[in-house]
């Protein structure tokens, strides 16, 4: 029996059937065809499926859609907000294969909304810690941290 549930995804209200306890990642990918959200472990351990729920980074691969009551933002919906960050990623080599990248971009977007600590060394450590839920196997992370710090500085109007 269908079990309707309302989600707000990237500002758009959609009705989805949550019978059978589908996970948010599957609803986004299979039913709404927003495949930017990737699934790499299915156990909430790698961050490839990161989306924002109520603005908070969340593992979509272990979140039942029925429990989601707040607006969802996916990498597709954050493409414009993250344009400078994505360009910085491209310039610094912050992605190679790009499979973890949507999750990195989503998590980093939330981090930048919250703002980074003032001091430079604190920034790198803070960004590294806050992005440690997003595994990247290609880049070794340095360029990811560089990009986030550079974008934060640019947005602050401070030269990096």
């Amino acid at each position: 029996m269908p079990q309707p549930h309302t989600l707000v995804v990237n500002g758009e209200t959609v009705e989805v059937d949550v019978a059978g306890l589908p996970l948010l990642a599957d609803v986004l990918r299979d039913r709404l065809r927003r495949t930017g959200t990737k699934v790499a472990c299915g156990r909430g351990e790698c961050g490839a499926c990161t989306v924002l729920v109520g603005g908070r980074p969340t593992m979509a691969c272990i979140t039942p859609a029925v429990l989601v009551r707040e607006p969802v933002e996916t990498v597709e919906g954050l493409a414009a907000e993250s344009a400078d960050l994505r360009a910085a990623f491209a310039d610094s080599g912050a992605f190679q294969c790009g499979f973890c990248t949507p999750g990195q971009v989503v998590a980093a977007t939330a981090l930048l909304r919250d703002g980074l600590p003032a001091a430079d060394e604190d920034r790198r450590a803070h960004v590294g810690h806050e992005l440690s839920g997003n595994v990247c196997r290609c880049t070794g992370y340095q360029a990811i941290v560089d990009s986030v710090c550079a974008v934060a500085a640019a947005r602050d109007g401070v030269s990096s």
């Binding site: 994505r86 491209a90 992605f95 949507p102």
Partner: peptide, 13 residues
Amino acid sequence: RPLDWDDRSAGRT
């Protein structure tokens, strides 16, 4: 930049 950087970083690839 990687050729398809815009699509790849925005989850469109």
